[in-house]
Design a protein around this nucleic acid. Structure first.
Lengths: 224, 224
DNA sequence: TATGCTGAAAAAATCGATTTTTACTATGAC
DNA sequence: GTCATAGTAAAAATCGATTTTTTCAGCATA
């Protein structure tokens, strides 16, 4: 038998804690939980079919990331959607992404251009997938990640990602958020063009406006 | 007996997980662990005298915060100190804190001035405490927190705190970091003066130079 | 009616045992 | 000697039971 067995470590071998983390994070951003709601741990255990330890580890990670609020001896809560906080998040996003985009246009090479085009293509074709809605969101996130990737600052990218996740929780809770997609996709095409042409000034303007567009819709998700 | 019992919920009643989190965080920033070192969980259990669950929850939080690296099925590791990353962290710190300080000078009120003076006073008197070194570090952190507090952006403050913690891990690992204190303290006094006088332009310069001073020393902590 | 107390039920947090995975060492084939 | 493999020790991850804390309904008191 020279036929090799499957390698000892499967490629997707990840811990239960990481899987619950990813699933919970997705559902939180998706808006599957009511803002302000208290999480019933024993209920989550059933929903996500995991034991207590990995579940609690995932909840702790999410709290440290800012997608959950942890209260002293009384568990975890989904943060409320506050207008004040949305303003804060959107403003910083605009500032950080304008800055990162400029740096990315200055540093990005041919390899980056190719990957950006690939990401854009996948975004355009997102409707054809099953569960088109969620798939578009995935591709959208990946497109923006790719766009800023060569900016040169790992920590800036980290903060941008975190703000993006926070922001999306508001945007996707807004009633009219799906009507936005067509408009956003036009801007995505323009962003790609400007990126390839290294149109720094115009790109800065556009990414700012791009965020503003979602921001204006996201406002309607806030209670206060 | 009308004498009240101690209230049911003590003021410092916090979970074991939170306590280990705080202790581990302090020790990581202090440099009690070797950079790059793999953490032996069963050993930590004894050192911090806690059970497995709260310990693992603390480790997960620290990993999400960026003070630990989590590797797929092989536990937790203390991140290495890389020159590239220090440059990234220091640069963003300068940018963010300059911005936050300007906003704080514009928005801070009389109450803030009073609290800033109080924090500065505690910092000056830090030597008189037992364990003067660690106490100065505590007061130093609190002084800078207080200084930027009224800047108006909760998320910016959050990122600044995170970068500060990262930065301090480098600074406190540097051999000569203690010789810095006298120089830093001079700048702290000047920062207070400029804050009260609302000298925006000068304050921006000074906070930038303040970070630069530590940055230059912190560089010596890096391996690569 | 409002306030405070009491105790049962529910929920959160913690523990130590068990299972799973990785790391390491020794052995044997080429 | 190098490489692959098997077996064993160690470590990480997970589980369900136990302990601790909170919540809340019912009752008593002013």
């Amino acid at each position: 038998m020279s036929m090799r067995q499957a390698p000892t470590r499967a490629l997707d071998a990840t811990t239960a804690a990481s899987q619950v983390y990813a699933a919970l994070k997705r559902d939180l951003i998706r808006g599957r939980f009511v803002a302000g709601e208290k999480l019933a741990i024993s209920h989550l255990r059933q929903t996500y079919a995991v034991g207590l330890s990995p579940l609690r580890e995932a909840l702790n990670r999410l709290a440290a990331y800012g997608l959950l609020a942890q209260e002293n001896q009384r568990g975890f809560r989904v943060p409320a959607l506050k207008r004040r906080e949305l303003d804060d998040i959107a403003g910083l996003r605009q500032q950080f992404e304008v800055q990162a985009l400029e740096a990315a246009l200055r540093h990005g090479d041919a390899q980056w251009e190719a990957e950006l085009l690939a990401a854009f293509h996948r975004l355009k074709r997102a409707d054809e997938q099953p569960d088109a809605l969620e798939h578009w969101e995935q591709m959208h996130l990946q497109f923006h990640r790719r766009l800023l990737e060569p900016c040169g600052s790992v920590w800036l990218l980290r903060f941008i990602e975190q703000l993006h996740d926070q922001f999306d929780r508001y945007r996707r809770m807004a009633p009219a958020h799906q009507d936005l997609r067509a408009q956003l996709d036009v801007q995505h095409a323009e962003l790609v063009e400007l990126a390839l042409a290294r149109g720094v000034a115009a790109a800065r303007e556009l990414i700012h406006a791009h965020i503003q567009l979602s921001y204006d819709v996201a406002k309607s998700a806030c209670s206060e």
